[in-house]
Structure formats: C-alpha cells, structure tokens
Computed example of a mutant assay.
Amino acid sequence: MQEFYEIVSSATEEQRQNLAELIDAGFGNSPALLCDHIKYLRGGSIGQIFCNTSWKQVVTDVADHIGINWPEVLDSRSWYELSTQEIENAVVMKQFQSIFEQLSQEQQQQILMDLQRESDDPHIEGFVLGGSTMLAAKMSGFGIYLLASTVLGSFTSALGITLPFAVYIGVSQTLSVILGPVGWAALAGGVLFSLNQPNWNRLILSVLFISTLRNSTDPQVSQRITKQSCLEQQSL
C-alpha cells in the first residue's frame, strides 16, 4: 500500500478527512489508519490481518468487480506494464459510463454541455460518447478530474454523504440531484457487505477520490480547481 500511503500523505488534512468519510473510516484520517481501513474494506475483519496487497492490486480488484474491458486497457501490454493511474482512469470512465447510459437523452445533453463548459479538452464529448475505457488514457488530467468528481457527486448524493463543495466542480455540483438516484443504481451491485467480504461500494469511492487527488497535483489542474472554487465561493 506504499503508493496509496504516499498519495494520502501528500494530501491536506481536509482531503484526508473527506476520504475517511467516504470510506467510513471511523478511527482517524492519518495515512497509516487510512491504509489499514482500505485493507479492512478489501479483506474483511479477518482477511485484513493477512492482507499485504498493493494499491495497484486493490484498484485492479475494483476494476475486475465493475467489469472494465481489460483488452482495451492493456492494449497488447501486460498488467505489469500498466501504471496504477491508468487503471484508476479506466475505473473512472467505466463508472461514468454506467451512470451516463442510465440518463435520458436530455440529461445526457445537459451533462455534455456542462462538461464542455468546464473542460479545456475539445475532445471530451467524443471521449464520453465513445464509451471506451482505453480513451481515458488520452484525456487530460483535468478531464479525468471532471469525470471522477462528477461520479463522486452522484454517489455521495445517493449515499447521503456530504462533502465540502470544493471537492466537486461544475457539473457534479449542478447535477447532483439528477445523478443521485442513478448513482445509487450504479452502486447497487456492491451494496451488501459481510464482515469477511470486500466492501466494493467504499472501495469504488476510494478509487474515485484517489483519482481526484492524483490529478489535482497537476499544476494546470490545481490552477483550474482553485479558480473554479473561488468563482463558486463568490456565487454563494
């Protein structure tokens, strides 16, 4: 879990607390405790004792669970040649598509207009409509951040989790009411959780949130997020 530990160690106290709320970590938000909770979510109360997995393996397990298209993502490479971020991006794209496909045509158009308004990527509509997890590799860091924060907005609305508005930008904030019920449907397959089985809902949320943290470290993404947060604060 070294990669996960390093990412959350670089996060702010507020960001770690947001992650702790998302994954229902009730014992604190230190990097070590968050790592331990991820192991608990993956292995259960007993399995966590023997869990010595990497963050890349956890993300891979989540990708398997939601059914990403591995041949597309691998693109003639081996799993060892993939970066963790590539697999995270594929999870983000897959989860976004799961929600997007359940919307009416009017709602889809509304989301596409909001994404185009917020994003500096002229190809984002093609990426979304293409529905290919392989296309995630071609998206800008800000594009991935937009999709990840939008899906997070949907899921947190569905689960009744309230995070600071600065976690989301644009599309995820304006469409949370529309996306909430759809987000619940997209998560429904992983709702049940026993003490010795993976909690896929919370693991999916952790992957989405880590994706936002990872992409927000890009200076251009960070600048856009800061600008957007300032504009939203002025509008309150």
Rank of each mutant, 00 (worst) to 15 (best):
T84C: 11
I68F: 03
N69V: 13
T60K: 07
T53E: 03
W79S: 14
G43N: 12
L41Q: 08
R42K: 04
L41M: 11
I68Y: 00
V73T: 02
L41G: 07
H65W: 15
W70R: 07
G47Q: 05
S45Q: 13
E72H: 11
T60D: 02
R77A: 13
E86F: 04
E88T: 05
G44A: 00
P71G: 08
W55N: 10
C51I: 09
R42Q: 08
L41N: 08
W55F: 03
H65D: 14
S45I: 13
E81F: 13
G43K: 01
L74R: 02
G44I: 09
S78Q: 04
Q48N: 02
I87M: 04
W79F: 14
T84L: 01
N69Q: 14
T84S: 09
D64F: 04
Q57W: 11
F50S: 06
R42P: 05
H65R: 14
I87Q: 01
A63V: 03
A63Q: 06
V62H: 12
V58P: 06
I87E: 10
E86S: 13
V59Q: 07
V59P: 11
T60F: 01
G47S: 01
K56C: 02
S76N: 14
V62A: 03
E88D: 08
D64H: 01
F50I: 04
R42W: 03
N89I: 14
L82C: 05
Y80F: 15
I46P: 02
